[in-house]
Structures are given as C-alpha cells and as structure tokens.
C-alpha cells in the first residue's frame, strides 16, 4: 500500500495533526513502508477465526453504582491550562451570527 502525499495530509487532518510539506513527504515514505510490511496479514486465511480483542476472559465488570468522592476535584481541574471557579475554561465553539 503506497500512500500519496495527499493521503498523508488527509490522515493527518483526521488525526488532528499539523504536518509541513517536508514532513508529509517523509511520512508518506515511512508509513508506506510500514503498511507494506503489514500487508502480509492479507495472505492469511482467517475465514472462521474469531478476533481477539482482549485476553482477560472478563466481560461486563461492574460495581455498585454509588458515589465515591475522589477528594481531588479541585486539583484535577487545576491541571487544566486555563480554569476558573472550579471549571475548565475552553474557547467558545459557536459564533453568534
């Protein structure tokens, strides 16, 4: 699978990564090399093989639905680059028209 520079730009956009045109060229080569290597999976017959997404054998691990105070809410909010009155401050997403 050979990736074009346009495809790398598209993937970077989906992944919220900003890449320069020099980087795009470098990544196109490197990513193509990796994808060519993993192509060998295509040759394996997996018709009746169940996928393994995890190996614990556990399903639906639940606990009582009760509130447990972390005791560190303020400290967690204080980790945010911008915060005010116990809230995380983010830029506005909608513009008034």
């Amino acid at each position: 699978m050979k990736l074009s520079q346009e495809e790398v730009e598209h993937i970077a956009k989906l992944a919220r990564l900003r890449v320069t045109s020099e980087e795009t060229e470098k990544y196109a080569g490197q990513l193509s090399g990796i994808l060519e290597y993993v192509e060998k999976l295509a040759a394996v017959d997996t018709a009746n093989i169940e996928p393994t997404s995890q190996v614990t054998g556990l399903t639906n691990v639940t606990r009582e639905d009760e509130i447990i105070e972390s005791g560190i809410s303020e400290e967690l909010v204080a980790c945010a680059p911008q915060h005010q009155d116990g809230y995380v401050v983010i830029p506005k997403i909608f513009e008034n028209k």
């Binding site: 993937i11 992944a15 990513l31 393994t52």
Partner: peptide
C-alpha cells in the same frame, strides 16, 4: 497516530484492525 488513524478509518477496518485481531487469535 497516523498509522492507527488510517487502519481504523472508514473502509479499512476489516482489512487491518479486524484482520490483526484474528491473527492475534492464531
């Protein structure tokens, strides 16, 4: 991030991620 984004993007899931999980079973 880019390899993963590509492998999980529309139309490629079966060929990459699902296939890899099946090989994981093998």
């Amino acid at each position: 991030i880019m390899i993963g984004t590509y492998a999980l993007s529309a139309g490629y899931y079966d060929a990459y991620y699902k296939k890899a999980m099946q090989v994981r079973t093998l």
